[in-house]
Amino acid sequence: MERLIGTVSMGVRAPIIRQGDDIAQIVVDSVVQATEQAGISLNEKDVVAVTEAVVARAQGNYATTEQIAQDVHNKFGDETVGVIFPILSRNRFSVCLKGIAGGAKKIVLMLSYPSDEVGNHLVDLDLLDEKGVNPWNDVLTEEKFRELFGYRVHPFTGVDYLAFYKELIQDAGCEVEIILANDCRAILDYTKNVLCCDIHTRARTKRLLKAAGAAKVYGLDEIMTASVNGSGFNENYGLLGSNKATENSVKLFPRNCQPVVDAIQKGLQEKTGVKVEAMIYGDGAFKDPIGKIWELADPVVSPAYTEGLEGQPNEVKLKYLADNDFADLRGEELKAAISDYIRHKDQDLVGKMVSQGTTPRRLTDLIGSLCDLTSGSGDKGTPIILVKGYFDNFTK
């Protein structure tokens, strides 16, 4: 009988992960137990994914605000530091900012507007139009922002981020001045020493600042790249991808991840005889149309994955074939014609009309987003995701 179910993504429950746990073995054991309990089997090219959060927990990859403060002071000394383009997030940035403030005497905090890099809005674009503000050119002081827009809270968190970040910096014993601008070079009117906190635009920001005469330029990806007084660290991403652990510590993005996914793949093959693909995933990349947040606050969706997840989908658009090449066919004849077309499709469909609209993105970004949506970020207790049938097509 023809199989009628295609791709399935399911969460797999796991024990609470602690520092020192063998995360690869836990993933292997959890998947084997879950599939046995559910009465399902693993197939070639199924994907087993584990969230970066539990990998970092098992590694014990943490840093305290004191350790962050020490690294910031080592890099900037007693200079006024321009902290520019942070995202508006209590989970992602508040503890980092507390540590940064602990290592500086004065911070000039420059926020982008009307929203941060990942879509958290300080103010609506329509309101900027109403007030005659041009966000590409206008630099607003905190006072001017309040005069124009008053106190505005985030629709989901109920937080006024100007007030929240200002108080956080002051509580760390650091002087603070707040401005709002979208040209990174605006900070140079206040200080020549800059910490770039943007994620996906950080390389351009650093380049522009250095070309404009900045004295010291670092990014969050250059803070905590080596251990400070016994801390964790991430040599590639620094503080990028970190999350709040406690009020005074963050969990860093995991490091040395490739051995983890390789061990998961090997362990499952040894136990089941099936070669699956494995990956570590963080934030997916999808936009919420109401809150306007597009989610991706990690530096990458997947810091490590097995070889079979390299590349992009190579798919044809079924509706294009049905409406064009086989417009005169119906029923089983149409099904047979499309199936035959898929079996003999080109190995590289880039630029071909028949592939138009088939989501030309990397496999790891697509599958990672699926995993992130499946696991959620709350109390589901499923840090492991099993994706079955992702590489199937209409002919399978």
Rank of each mutant, 00 (worst) to 15 (best):
V50F: 03
V95K: 02
A24P: 08
A322L: 03
L240S: 08
Y237K: 02
N314F: 10
I17V: 15
S231C: 08
G308K: 00
E167S: 14
L111E: 04
T374S: 07
Q67T: 02
A211T: 10
A24L: 09
D283M: 06
L127W: 12
A304V: 08
Q70S: 09
D346N: 13
D124L: 13
A327M: 03
W294P: 00
Q25K: 15
F326D: 00
E66K: 09
E2F: 10
T65D: 05
D372I: 03
K380L: 14
G308D: 00
L309A: 02
G267C: 09
L168R: 12
I68M: 08
S249E: 08
L349W: 10
K131H: 13
M10C: 09
A101C: 11
I187Y: 04
Y161N: 01
G238A: 09
I384F: 09
D22V: 11
G389L: 07
E147R: 13
V8Q: 06
E167G: 14
R13E: 15
H121G: 02
G241D: 03
I17H: 06
E147M: 10
L329R: 00
D22L: 11
T395F: 01
V123P: 03
R343P: 00
R90F: 05
A304H: 02
L148M: 10
R90P: 01
N393D: 15
G20K: 12
D124M: 14
I5L: 11
N243T: 05
Q265G: 04
E66L: 05
R185D: 04
V81K: 10
K244N: 04
T80N: 11
A69F: 05
R207L: 15
I169K: 10
V95C: 05
R361L: 15
Y62N: 01
G39L: 10
F394P: 00
V95D: 01
V316R: 06
L162A: 08
A58Q: 06
N243H: 03
A172Q: 13
Q59H: 09
I5K: 11
A226N: 08
L97N: 04
A24M: 10
A211E: 14
E277I: 03
I223P: 01
L88I: 09
A104H: 05
I338T: 10
E222W: 10
K105Y: 12
C174G: 07
G368A: 06
I342T: 05
I84Q: 01
G99P: 08
T205L: 08
K131V: 13
S369Y: 13
S302M: 04
Y305D: 01
